[in-house]
């Protein structure tokens, strides 16, 4: 293929400016606003207005008040990402190498469930995990759950919901990197190492790392910030950071605290992503 020649001149600016301006005004600038808001005088309110006092103390206050949901979000996000990785890898591997001529069909089926409303499908988990539902009854019969044990309104339900809802974000990048792989490599390693387990960890897994990295990021980031699952499937003890930010903004109208929490969340995610990406050695992702 011929090398792409990029044209110079005015046209490039004319094409990029509308979109870039939109993102500048409605994404970059708001983020600056968010940081500013997080430093407002915490005693202000909607009625009296806020004053910029560079109140860095806000950050200390919110961490003291909300360190639990903050840590819980990271924990739930990480666990859900792990489950997504396990389930997603099996599914992506099956589609990439074992599906034969049904490859496209299976790919369509991976996306299909997620084309319906996020909230509606999360509500159906509420039904599935309900106290008198089929799953709970079966588990009680098998003595996995105690007689008054439950699934709904537990951390299990929240993590299960997160795992379910973000699964395609894991499957698609995994599939993309597995599908690019030459299956003969796996066959060659079977020939050389004999053992399928060894050849998986020596050949398949390392070659699929780019997919693993982008899949885990695409799953982890939205999972940490999500609060729909925590709200619909959890209880007051499973509140995640998203719930807190949301209610501080809309119910409590405590903008500085909400802003500070958001900034903390964003910073933590950015830091973790950078460390993770550098560790995984796939910086070209960014």
């Amino acid at each position: 293929m011929a090398e792409t020649v990029r044209r110079r001149g005015r046209t490039g600016y004319l094409l990029i400016i509308p979109g870039a301006l939109w993102l500048l005004v409605f994404f970059a600038f708001p983020f600056y606003s968010l940081i500013a808001t997080s430093l407002y005088d915490p005693t202000g309110s909607d009625f009296r207005g806020y004053q910029m006092t560079y109140a860095f103390g806000n950050y200390v206050d919110v961490v003291e008040a909300y360190w639990q949901p903050l840590l819980r979000s990271l924990l739930y996000g990480a666990i859900a990402t792990f489950f997504c990785l396990v389930l997603g890898y099996v599914l992506a591997y099956a589609i990439a190498f074992k599906s034969g001529r049904y490859k496209t069909l299976m790919l369509v089926l991976v996306i299909a469930p997620f084309l319906t409303s996020f909230l509606v499908r999360t509500l159906s988990w509420k039904l599935l995990l309900a106290d008198d539902g089929f799953i709970v009854n079966t588990l009680q019969l098998l003595q996995v759950l105690g007689d008054d044990g439950r699934l709904l309104a537990t951390p299990f339900a929240v993590v299960a919901g997160l795992t379910y809802n973000f699964l395609p974000f894991m499957v698609l990048p995994l599939f993309a990197s597995l599908d690019k792989m030459d299956y003969r490599l796996i066959e060659a390693s079977r020939d050389l190492y004999g053992n399928p387990v060894v050849s998986f960890f020596k050949v398949t897994w390392p070659l699929s790392l780019p997919g693993v990295v982008s899949g885990t990021l695409l799953t982890f980031i939205p999972a940490v910030g999500d609060f729909i699952n925590a709200e619909l499937l959890g209880n007051t003890n499973t509140r995640m950071i998203g719930n807190v930010v949301q209610s501080l903004f809309t119910d409590a109208n405590d903008y500085p605290a909400a802003g500070a929490l958001s900034v903390i969340l964003m910073t933590m995610i950015l830091a973790m992503v950078l460390v993770y990406v550098r560790r995984a050695g796939t910086e070209e992702l960014l």
Binding site: P30, F31, S262, M266
Partner: peptide
Amino acid sequence: APEIVLGSS
């Protein structure tokens, strides 16, 4: 960026 950050910004 997580949606909650986009929205709150």
